[in-house]
Amino acid sequence: MDGTRTSLDIEEYSDTEVQKNQVLTLEEWQDKWVNGKTAFHQEQGHQLLKKHLDTFLKGKSGLRVFFPLCGKAVEMKWFADRGHSVVGVEISELGIQEFFTEQNLSYSEEPITEIPGTKVFKSSSGNISLYCCSIFDLPRTNIGKFDMIWDRGALVAINPGDRKCYADTMFSLLGKKFQYLLCVLSYDPTKHPGPPFYVPHAEIERLFGKICNIRCLEKVDAFEERHKSWGIDCLFEKLYLLTEK
C-alpha cells in the first residue's frame, strides 16, 4: 500500500471551527459572476446526480424540485425535460440570464411583489422559475412545498455562521416524503479558508438530524488541478440523501 486515501476511508478533519467566522457578502458573489470567477459551475452537470437520477425519480412526473443557490445549473433542465417543475433561487441576475441563454430557453421576467426590487424569471414553458433574491428572503414569497431539493454548491457556499438559518429555510420548503439530495466537500479547512466551505458529517447531523434521516450514498475523489491553488492536495465530495423521519 502506498498510503493513498480512497473514497471509502475519508477521515473527518478535527479543526472544524477554523472557518466559522468566514463571510462572503452577496455583493462579492455577484462580483464573481461579473468577473467570470465561476469555476464552481459544471458545464456537463453533476455526474453523481446523473448516475442516481432515475433511481431517485422512480419514474414519477410532476414533482416540484428546488435548487438553492442555483446559478446556471444545467441540471435544472434535466428535471424540466422529465416533466418536473423547477424552482431556483440565485442572487446573480447575470447567472440566471446565462442559464436561459445557454439552454436556449425563452423566458419572461416579473417583479417579486413580496420582495421589493427583486425579480423572478420564468421559462415560456412555465416549468422553470428562478427567483433573483437572497435565499433568506425566499420564504416571504409563499412558493409552496417541494418534493425534492438538489443542494450542490449551496450549503458549502453559505457562510458558516448562517447555516442554521439556511437549514431552517430548507425545512420550511420541504413537503411530505421529501428527498433532499446534498453534496458537501471534505478537505483540510486549515489550508483553505473557503468558500466552498468544509462541511463535516457531524455538521450535517447537527443541522438536519432532528428532522431528517441522513444517509451518505457515495464518496468520490473530486480533486482537480485547479484545487492546488487552494493549498490542498486532497478533496473529496460526498452525496447524501436526507429523508423524512
Rank of each mutant, 00 (worst) to 15 (best):
K210N: 07
L217S: 05
D221L: 09
M170I: 07
V34P: 03
K176E: 04
D233W: 11
R64M: 02
G153T: 07
H84K: 00
A80E: 02
H41S: 10
C132V: 04
T38M: 06
G175E: 04
S129F: 06
L155T: 12
L217H: 01
I91L: 07
Y13W: 11
Q179W: 07
T113N: 09
F171A: 13
E28S: 08
V74P: 07
I158V: 15
S61L: 15
L182C: 09
E110G: 07
G62Y: 09
E218G: 04
I232W: 08
A167C: 14
D233E: 15
T243R: 10
C216A: 07
Y166K: 00
V86N: 00
D9G: 12
S134W: 03
S7P: 05
E203K: 04
S186R: 06
H227C: 03
L105G: 02
Q103A: 13
F99W: 11
E224R: 06
W29C: 04
A222D: 04
L239D: 04
W29V: 04
L26Y: 07
R215F: 01
W230I: 14
G175T: 15
C212E: 01
Y13C: 11
L182T: 03
D221W: 14
L185C: 07
R140F: 02
F79Q: 00
I91V: 14
L185E: 12
L181T: 04
F208W: 13
P68K: 00
T113D: 14
G231R: 10
T169M: 13
I232L: 10
K164F: 07
I149S: 02
E225S: 11
H192V: 09
R82I: 12
F236R: 10
K210E: 04
D188W: 04
Y187R: 04
I128E: 01
K228L: 13
I214E: 04
E237P: 03
G88Q: 01
G161Q: 14
K122Q: 10
M76P: 01
T141Q: 11
F66C: 06
E43C: 11
F197W: 05
G3W: 13
G209K: 08
A154K: 01
H46R: 05
C216Q: 12
E27M: 06
E203V: 11
K219V: 14
T6Q: 03
Q47I: 15
V86W: 00
Q179V: 14
H201E: 12
K32Q: 08
T38P: 08
C165V: 15
K145V: 09
P116D: 12
G36W: 12
D162Y: 07
G83T: 02
E90M: 07
K60S: 11
T25Q: 08
I10L: 09
L174A: 08
P196S: 10
M170V: 12
D15A: 10
C165W: 14
H201F: 11
W78C: 09
K51M: 04
V156P: 06
R215V: 05
N35V: 10
W33D: 10
S123L: 00
V65G: 01
D168Q: 12
T243L: 09
F146V: 05
S229R: 14
L239V: 10
R206M: 11
G209D: 14
K191T: 04
S124F: 09
K72G: 07
P196W: 03
P196G: 03
V23C: 12
D9P: 14
T25S: 14
C132Q: 15
E90H: 06
I10K: 14
E90T: 04
E28A: 10
V86A: 05
S129A: 15
E75V: 05
F100G: 01
T169I: 07
E17K: 08
T4S: 12
C165H: 04
P160W: 06
S85Q: 14
E244C: 13
W29E: 08
K191S: 12
R215K: 05
G59E: 14
D221E: 12
L241W: 03
Q30E: 10
A80Q: 03
I214D: 00
F197H: 09
R163C: 02
A39Q: 12
K20A: 09
S129E: 08
F66M: 13
A222W: 03
R226P: 07
I115K: 14
R82W: 09
E102P: 00
H84Y: 04
Q44F: 14
Q103N: 15
E43N: 02
W78A: 04
M148H: 06
K37N: 08
D81F: 01
V86S: 02
K219G: 10
Q22L: 03
P111K: 08
D162Q: 10
W29S: 06
D151A: 01
H41G: 08
F67L: 05
K32E: 10
T141M: 15
K77P: 03
C165G: 04
N21Q: 15
R82N: 06
G161P: 14
T6Y: 08
S106Q: 10
V89N: 14
T6K: 15
I91P: 04
L53D: 04
L8R: 11
I135R: 00
L26P: 12
R140V: 09
F79W: 05
R206T: 12
P68M: 01
K177P: 15
K164T: 14
L155V: 05
Q22I: 13
G126W: 03
P160M: 03
V156Q: 07
E75M: 09
L138T: 02
D15W: 06
V65M: 02
P139G: 11
D2P: 14
R5Y: 11
F208Q: 01
T16N: 10
A154P: 01
S124K: 14
G62L: 07
F40E: 10
T4N: 14
Y187E: 04
H227P: 07
T118Q: 02
R64W: 01
G153V: 05
G83W: 01
K37W: 09
Q22P: 05
D188S: 04
A167M: 07
A202C: 12
D162P: 00
K20C: 13
K20P: 09
F171C: 10
H41E: 09
T190D: 04
A202N: 09
N142S: 06
Y198W: 06
S124W: 09
K228A: 09
F66Y: 01
T243A: 12
F121V: 05
T169V: 08
L207R: 03
V18K: 02
C216L: 13
K238S: 10
L241E: 13
I143C: 15
T118L: 06
D168L: 09
V74K: 02
G209P: 06
F66D: 00
G45W: 06
T169N: 02
L138P: 00
P111R: 13
F171E: 02
Q179C: 00
L105T: 11
G59K: 03
M148T: 06
S123P: 00
F208M: 12
I135D: 00
K77G: 08
E11C: 13
E90K: 05
F66Q: 00
E203P: 02
V220K: 13
L173E: 00
D188M: 08
E11F: 06
D233C: 15
Y107K: 02
Q47P: 14
Y180W: 09
W150K: 00
K228Y: 09
W150Q: 01
L48F: 02
Y107C: 09
